[in-house]
Write a protein that binds this DNA or RNA. Structure first.
Length: 271
DNA sequence: ATGATTTCCTGTAGGC
DNA sequence: TGCCTACAGGAAATCA
């Protein structure tokens, strides 16, 4: 499930490997995977990739013709840069041919929770889910973070998963950050002190930064742009580690279900 | 307004 | 071996 570190890893590779290259063809294999702007698909031919931007878990590829390509990987989505001659893998919904077609960007997504879209760049800021995104965790300031949580009963983990509040966290990094901060996932946000909020924000940033360095977490479907696996799954302390000893207090990691999400925590360290 | 629940989708794992 | 069910979860829509 690509979250901020996985998407950031892909975006950094995209910047390095696709900037300045020309698009030969935008070729959807499943029209219903293109949630918006399918009618613009022929207009991107001959445009040049100028800039690749990440916001939360979204990827925006800005083109020279004032269009932007928007991508979300959902939970099983992959964006892969590969030779156009490679055999077409199952669940490939979109091909973006580059240069003379010898190289292409492919979006694969078995569960189809992700999507792609083509938008005039000026319309990106009115695209609902993009425009409603909350602050990037690296930019958010602690007092603002604390103010967002104050006075609410919502479980802190549910709050962290809400992309309109803070953008980019998913199930892995909420569990890992809450563990590092020593905060129980079900604690109401209103009961979190200013000091705890500051610590939590620091833990969020640290775990995200460490994961980016490791190229993200490959627990299920996630692969980097070149198809290799990320390495941060080996550093998880609680996520999917039910019954294994806590690295701090050695009590067994437990799991509960919160809003339909499996939630992993240490009953000793997190209060 | 807030927050919980349901829905979409398919590959994989486990039970019998 | 094969069939069945449960599970994984991002985010929009719906419900209480």
């Amino acid at each position: 499930m690509p979250e901020l570190p996985e998407v950031e890893t892909i975006v950094r590779s995209l910047r390095k490997l696709t900037a300045g290259r020309r698009i030969l063809k935008y070729h959807p294999l499943r029209n219903d995977y293109i949630h918006q702007g399918l009618e613009h698909r022929k207009k991107v031919t001959n445009s040049v990739i100028q800039e690749v931007e990440r916001r939360g878990k979204y990827i925006a590829i800005h083109l020279s013709n004032n269009f932007s390509l928007l991508h979300h990987l959902g939970m099983s989505g992959r964006l892969l840069l590969q030779p156009g001659s490679d055999p077409l893998e199952k669940h490939t919904h979109l091909r973006i041919l580059l240069d003379d077609g010898s190289v292409e960007l492919r979006q694969r997504d078995p569960r189809r929770f992700g999507f792609a879209a083509i938008l005039p760049s000026v319309e990106l800021k009115t695209f609902v889910s993009w425009s409603h995104l909350g602050a990037d965790p690296f930019r958010l300031r602690a007092p603002r973070f604390y103010a967002l949580m104050a006075g609410r009963k919502q479980a802190v983990k549910s709050f962290l998963l809400d992309q309109r509040r803070i953008a980019g966290l998913g199930n892995i990094y909420t569990d890992e950050a809450l563990f590092r901060a020593g905060i129980h996932p079900v604690r109401p946000t209103g009961q979190i002190s200013s000091a705890e909020a500051g610590r939590l924000l620091q833990c969020i940033r640290t775990v995200l930064r460490e994961s980016i360095v490791a190229g993200g977490s490959s627990t299920n479907d996630y692969q980097r742009l070149d198809g290799t696996l990320g390495l941060f799954q080996h550093k998880h302390r609680v996520y999917r580690r039910v019954g294994l000893p806590c690295p701090i207090c050695h009590r067994k990691i437990e799991k509960l279900v919160l809003n339909g999400r499996s939630t992993h925590y240490c009953p000793g360290c997190q209060t």
